Simulated assay, not measured.
Amino acid sequence: MPRLVRDRLTWVMYVQLALWVYFLYGFGPVAPLLRDELHISRTLAGLHGTAFAAGGIIGGAVLPVLTRRLGRHRLIWIGLGLVCAAAGGMYAAHHLALTLTFTTLGSFGGALSVNAINAALTDHHGNAAPAAISEANAAAAGVGLVAPLIVGATFAAGLGWRFGLVLVVIPVVVVALYARARAVRPPEAAGFGGERAAHRPLPGTFPLALTSLFATGSIEICLTLWGSDVLRDHARVSAGVATAALSTLIAGMVAGRLVGGRLLLRFRPTRMLLVALVVNVAGFALFWSATLPWLAMAGLAVAGLGMGLHYPLGIGLALAHSDGQPDLAAARASFAVGISFAVAPFALGALADRVGPHPAFLLVPLFAAVSAVAILRLDRLTLPDLGTADVAAEGR
């Protein structure tokens, strides 16, 4: 059984990922607030999800070149710097064009950081990489848990949601100073600082992992971007409470990732992802059908329990089936997640404008079914006796 060793570098990368997630989940529930503030439709508000997608897609497109020229270390900090710039810009943005621009910038920076972190964790931890990635995302979700609470609290206090979002700048500066003082640097990718290495074709199993990432990314962005709108529309809670209540979803994600990190050292990632999809759909059904606020929030927590493992398992499988090319796989994964961020919230917003947010949310179990089909196929193509360690090492 692989052993996960958490050294200083591991903890720094955990915190770096968490700072991006603070921005992501701090901004996630404000789409309905922006809709009210800017007097726009749900379709136009859903363009913020599309802007997130554009940033992720652009980041994925340039990631291999930037990784080779700048290295993972610089790329991670440049990405976090762009996230801070986006948070600061959003503080003064009161026009749709500006909010979309800074959303794209933040997502672009996040894509650079998170993909470099995932690739570095894969190289640094070897066979224990799936557990490390899950644990990193658990730590990040723990920070993301407080983000909607802070944003909702500043909104309710009259300071505005932007004040809560821009607070991310302070810990980024603190961690950057610590990493510099202790000379903490991630392992660099093969070919860094040299000629461009020839990429081998990715294995035939890789597109299945990519398909699942697209589908589970669609689930996550729909629930985080529009979950509070359903609480307002169907469970009849106030805007401030609905924004803060999204923390129940993230609390479930934290619990799922903490438990999943341990289980991934014992069980096959494909089987665990299938179980996570079932748990997510069960929680969604409770959330979607409940009219009592506390019951709807309980459903969100259960949905988050399953959803918490979607991304770490999906990216872990993509990197494992990369034939030893984690940076290339991470870049391609950005496209899958980016496209999901583009298509899903816009489609859900457009459908919600026609039939209402509650029935439109039935897109979520449809995405879960797509992911399940892809993972079932991937599981069948994987040798029956492969354990987690073998799956993680399969791409190396």
Results as ranks from 00 to 15, higher is better:
M272I: 08
G256T: 13
V281Y: 00
R271T: 12
L258Q: 03
G260S: 07
L263F: 11
G252W: 02
F287V: 14
R266D: 08
A282D: 02
V279Q: 01
L286I: 15
M253N: 03
A251W: 03
W294G: 07
L295Q: 12
F284T: 12
L265Y: 04
F287T: 14
L295W: 11
L273T: 07
G252T: 08
M297A: 08
W294N: 05
A282G: 05
R262I: 01
L277Q: 06
I250T: 11
W288Q: 12
R257S: 07
V259K: 01
A290T: 14
P269M: 10
R266V: 11
R271D: 12
I250W: 14
L274D: 02
A282S: 10
M297Q: 05
A282C: 10
L273H: 09
L277K: 05
A255P: 04
G252R: 01
T270D: 03
R262G: 04
R271E: 10
R271Q: 11
W294P: 05
V259L: 11
T270V: 04
A296Y: 05
G256V: 13
L292F: 12
P293L: 13
L265P: 01
F284N: 06
V259G: 04
F267C: 09
V279C: 02
L292N: 10
G261R: 13
N280K: 06
P269D: 09
M272Q: 08
R262Q: 08
L258S: 00
V254W: 08
M253S: 03
M253F: 11
P293K: 11
L277M: 10
S289T: 15
V254S: 07
V278Y: 00
L263H: 06
I250R: 06
I250H: 02
R268F: 04
V275N: 08
W294H: 12
A282V: 15
R257N: 05
G260R: 09
G260Y: 02
L274S: 02
F267M: 14
P293W: 11
A255E: 01
A285C: 14
S289V: 15
L286M: 14
F284L: 13
S289Y: 13
R262D: 02
G256Y: 13
L274N: 01
R257E: 04
G252I: 09
L295P: 04
P293F: 12
V275A: 15
A255H: 03
R271P: 03
S289P: 07
A251V: 10
F267P: 07
L286P: 02
V279N: 00
G261H: 05
V278L: 06
V278S: 01
G283C: 14
L274P: 01
A251Y: 03
A251E: 00
V278W: 01
M297H: 00
